[in-house]
Simulated assay, not measured.
Amino acid sequence: MAGTTPRRVGRLLLSQYWRDGPLLHWPVRARAVAGPMPPGVVPDVCDGTSRVGPVALGMERPGPGSGGGLPFFGTFPEVNVRLFSVDGQGRRGVVFRSLDCPRLAAVPAARAALGLLRRWSDTRWTAEYGAPHLAGRVRGPAGGRAGRPLRGDVGPRLERPGLPADLLTARWGLHTRTRGRTVYLRVEHPRRPLHRAHAHELRQNLVRAAGVEVAGPPASVLFCPGVPVRSGPCTPAD
């Protein structure tokens, strides 16, 4: 899998910047995550397993086209739990099982436009001095909360990430179900700068609340300081 965008987005719909993002992943059996996949999409598998994991990031000035951020949105943290997907056209992407953010206006917008499971939460995310820290209240589907689900530190940069880092970070789209059809939202960004990272404190209830059971520490912990992201129009995936 290449670490650079295989297809350009063409017509630009949305631009933003993802910053200070830790990526944690566990291997899971494909059949354990096949149920949540939208029609026409199956789990993406490498070395006999698929992957699941939470990703926290600072969503910086999202807005339409290249004209900058929307009023009142600014920069806000987002925590998502993602599955890895591939469709019948061979396009690899992710399927979100949850997206938590503290911007109330962003919740109905994501649900209406893309059918995403974005929820409001009192989430606070910092990554100062090489120490990622996710705090606040992340609300589960039944009202459960995680008070401090992640604390870690950042190590040296990976000059040649290779597999499985490319599998985990070179995801060039989003598969989702909206308005009765499965669609693929293409994304484009430069190769992510990646660092090794370590999670000192981690509560797995974020993944469990998303409907996937994992055990033990994550098999992979990476950190990306930031990358500009462009999104194009949705295309059919089923």
Score class of each variant (00 low, 15 high):
181 R>T: 08
160 R>S: 03
83 L>Y: 11
118 R>M: 11
227 V>N: 00
9 V>F: 08
64 P>N: 08
103 R>M: 01
215 A>D: 13
147 G>V: 12
173 G>N: 05
227 V>R: 00
34 A>M: 02
126 T>R: 14
76 F>W: 11
192 R>N: 05
117 L>K: 15
1 M>E: 09
204 Q>V: 12
1 M>Q: 14
199 A>N: 04
43 P>Y: 00
171 R>I: 12
125 W>R: 06
86 V>H: 14
197 A>P: 02
222 L>G: 01
229 V>L: 13
120 W>S: 06
79 V>D: 03
137 R>T: 09
79 V>S: 03
27 P>K: 03
122 D>P: 08
168 L>F: 08
38 P>H: 09
16 Q>L: 15
205 N>L: 07
198 H>A: 10
60 E>T: 15
184 Y>Q: 08
48 G>V: 01
84 F>S: 09
123 T>V: 15
172 W>T: 01
189 H>P: 14
124 R>A: 10
229 V>W: 12
54 P>I: 11
52 V>A: 08
13 L>Q: 13
235 T>P: 04
221 V>N: 00
175 H>V: 13
63 G>S: 15
11 R>V: 07
80 N>G: 08
218 P>A: 03
213 E>I: 15
86 V>I: 14
238 D>R: 13
125 W>Y: 12
167 L>G: 07
102 P>M: 02
134 L>I: 07
71 P>Q: 07
120 W>E: 07
156 P>I: 04
238 D>H: 11
201 E>P: 00
232 G>A: 11
68 G>I: 04
81 V>P: 06
47 D>N: 10
144 G>W: 01
231 S>Y: 12
90 G>N: 05
155 G>L: 09
33 V>S: 00
168 L>I: 15
149 P>G: 04
132 P>F: 07
202 L>D: 01
120 W>G: 07
114 L>T: 11
163 L>H: 15
135 A>G: 09
